[in-house]
């Protein structure tokens, strides 16, 4: 098994740090799945916790200046699946905050399997650079256990809308969290999305209008209708946690609603780098 990757663009490196920090706010450990054409990070806390399922998809050819991997079973679909403690990886990457010149990731075996993070960062005070090396202990997941660590699939949603400014939504859901345990996402094909929180005393609705419609998959019964509607009620704490964990300053978020089944949130960081989350529906 071999894995080496190098980043050189400071902006990419900072983004990478934000991604890992996002994951470390959601789960203690994440699964890193390395294949030839994709790198995935999956943060999935055990069921019962409030943390939502979040996964990150990275296209290594665009992101890493240098990328080599050699997985087991090299003939068909070679992979490396690692279990990484997110907090350790976050600490290891912390130097990326100040003006890094390169960041290398490498899978090594130093007494036990490690993901070696090698960062070189320039300093303000001197012309020479500072160098940090961390050996983050990882668990190599054997092939027989791979089925348990499959990357989640992107669900098919009835309506997908582009919602602006997730910072606004974050503040809103943070407030609603204290009022109601659930929040209803309601959207129409006319480009309107409502966030509804119902309590005994009041109903709070936040309306977003003239949103861009991303995709539409009408069900058989809806095809004749002029406006197609979709709504789903989700756990408010779970939703709030996703938004508060999100460290990336992005302006747009796509929100897919599958009627009474789930909500799929997707943040497109840049071409080839996306953060996904699935929020399951709850009964009111």
């Amino acid at each position: 098994m071999k894995f080496r990757a190098m980043m050189q663009d400071p902006e990419y490196m900072r983004e990478f740090l934000y991604i890992i920090q996002t994951l470390s706010k959601l789960a203690k450990a994440c699964v890193m799945k390395i294949s030839m054409d994709k790198v995935y990070f999956v943060a999935n806390e055990e069921s019962g916790s409030t943390a939502p399922l979040v996964w990150v998809e990275i296209d290594p050819k665009q992101y890493f200046a240098e990328y080599t991997m050699q997985g087991v079973d090299s003939e068909n679909d070679p992979h490396i699946v690692l279990n990484i403690p997110t907090l350790n990886l976050g600490t290891a990457l912390s130097l990326l905050r100040n003006n890094p010149s390169y960041c290398k990731l490498k899978l090594t075996n130093l007494q036990f399997p490690c993901l070696t993070v090698d960062i070189d960062a320039a300093t303000k005070s001197s012309d020479k650079s500072r160098r940090a090396m961390h050996h983050v202990p990882v668990d190599v997941i054997p092939r027989c256990d791979w089925p348990h660590f499959a990357v989640p699939t992107i669900p098919e949603c009835k309506l997908v809308l582009n919602v602006p400014s997730n910072r606004l939504i974050r503040g809103l859901i943070d407030k609603i969290k204290n009022l109601s345990p659930t929040i209803i996402f309601y959207a129409t094909s006319a480009g309107e999305m409502n966030l509804v929180a119902e309590t005994d005393m009041a109903t709070i609705t936040t309306r977003y209008q003239n949103l861009e419609l991303h995709t539409i998959n009408p069900s058989d019964g809806d095809k004749s209708k002029e406006h197609i509607e979709a709504s789903c009620s989700v756990d408010c704490k779970k939703t709030a946690l996703f938004f508060s964990a999100l460290q990336i300053p992005s302006t747009e978020l796509s929100c897919g609603i599958a009627d009474d089944r789930l909500i799929h949130l997707e943040v497109n960081v840049r071409d080839g780098v996306t953060i996904h989350s699935k929020l399951p529906a709850v009964c009111i």
Partner: peptide, 17 residues
């Protein structure tokens, strides 16, 4: 000898810092 969950870290700084 280190624990299997132990993260080894090192930082190299130049004298002129």
């Amino acid at each position: 000898r280190v624990n299997e969950k132990f993260m080894r870290s090192q930082l190299q700084l130049n004298a002129d810092e």
